[in-house]
Design a protein around this nucleic acid. Structure first.
Lengths: 251, 251
DNA sequence: GTACATTGCGTCATTATAACACATTTGAAT
DNA sequence: ATTCAAATGTGTTATAATGACGCAATGTAC
């Protein structure tokens, strides 16, 4: 995989990569899609290189798909990471030799890579982590239990989460993170998880329903050891409208 | 200048550039710092290439300084632009020949460049546009009267303005955009210009003073053909505090 | 002095927010 | 079957923020 790219490095944007932070929500936990390479301790964000014949936003989709099999998610650019030493010594000489990378390929690979961070919110249940490379494992990992990551991927992940927190104050979140039918308490848990703080149940209910993006369904969640909460779905039309206009006008 | 870089292109990150959108405020107008190259119709944002030995955030400062002489501004990354054809045919063969660019330099220059957009808000009065290249003109231009720009620079400028509008709802703006002493109506004009809409004078006054970032001075503006408005300055400490915590908590 | 434009401060109705109380509903325990 | 525990849906109340105004005060121009 990597070797294929290196052997054809003239088809890729030099010194530029893309890393994706894919958020999902399951069991009231915010999950992140991570990759572990066989025989490696560390994990990494799904990332890759930028084909010369693709716009960077397109390349992000390509990269994510080629590493995880994930399709049809809306990726959003959130930051660029380009410290001089960010990938210094990431590929040691021995590794390059063992992988039988040509000198030219090695030189290409070891230059400073500037990486563009993209993030997406996805419906956990619809995503089947499916590594395209049999030497890799793709897994959903609770964002509170993220293992050691390669390079500056921890920083990238943190920045993505930070961006998400800010966005929460400007626009509704949840459309792609929750299943089609969900309860208000579930949505609240999502907000609480992202913001990392407790919200008052009753005030949250009032505020979120007042926005007008929720449709109350004629159905209740069952199999719960307490009063069954009502199910809701997003009113896509109103949701998009609010997305466009923003939540808090401010001025 | 460009030739120097091309002759030493091995010292620069290939296919990566930085473009800066520098906003100033003067005569109640939002101004943008633009560059015009001699014998060229079009204008451009101050931009340039990324030295291999500089972090991208540092490179942004270098780039801005090397094109305009501007120093000591806080540049903020806001987006990346990387359409496949964004700089296609920007440098025609004849131009490259006329500039006596080597074949290798030409190849380097005509590859697809991904550009990182940075923006800054600066105190108009403190900035002296000062082209380092005598064949270039650096000028403040009213954002409502921006001439035709090269490449996708109009798109970059628009995106910067859009980012600025969003930020206005999250944090106070003005510290670097206004002179040390200013009046509330002046600050309001700034907000109105950025948001491109009228605000109620009295409500704006109440809201902005309630934030607690303004210090009322014992001084009034003079030479105005009406009641003299009071002068204010920013309380840097409180300003920074609000910057950190954000304006609208939202949740 | 008078006219004029604009500022500073105040009012008032409406809406949003935070902090609660309380009754309801469900599965589980006895 | 009755009771319990846990969580939900709705309501209340005090306080704060917002939007739409009224009006007196101030400094220059005439």
């Amino acid at each position: 995989m990597l070797k294929d790219i290196l052997d054809n490095n003239q088809n890729y944007q030099p010194g530029l990569s893309i890393d994706c932070v894919i958020f999902g929500f399951h069991n009231n936990q915010l999950k992140v899609l991570l990759i572990q390479v066989e025989n490696s301790q560390k994990w990494s964000l799904p990332g890759g290189f930028v084909p010369l014949d693709q716009d960077i936003d397109t390349a992000a989709i390509t990269v994510l798909n080629s590493r995880t099999g994930v399709e049809g998610v809306f990726l959003r650019q959130f930051a660029v990471f380009g410290k001089v030493m960010r990938n210094h010594n990431h590929f040691g000489e021995e590794v390059l030799k063992r992988m039988e990378i040509s000198d030219e390929g090695s030189k290409w690979l070891t230059q400073r890579f500037v990486t563009i961070g993209y993030y997406a919110l996805v419906d956990f249940s619809k995503i089947v982590p499916n590594p395209t490379n049999k030497h890799e494992t793709v897994e959903w990992i609770d964002h509170k239990e993220v293992p050691e990551l390669i390079l500056d991927h921890k920083e990238i992940l943190d920045k993505a989460l930070d961006t998400l927190r800010t966005e929460l104050n400007l626009m509704p979140v949840g459309y792609n993170l929750l299943p089609e039918k969900f309860t208000v308490p579930e949505l609240q848990k999502l907000y609480e998880t992202i913001l990392d703080k407790k919200l008052d149940r009753r005030n949250f209910f009032r505020k979120i329903t007042n926005i007008g993006i929720l449709t109350k369904l004629d159905e209740k969640k069952n199999n719960v050891a307490h009063k069954a909460p009502n199910l809701y779905s997003f009113d896509k039309e109103k949701y998009d409208e609010v997305l466009k206009n923003g939540l808090n006008q401010g001025w």
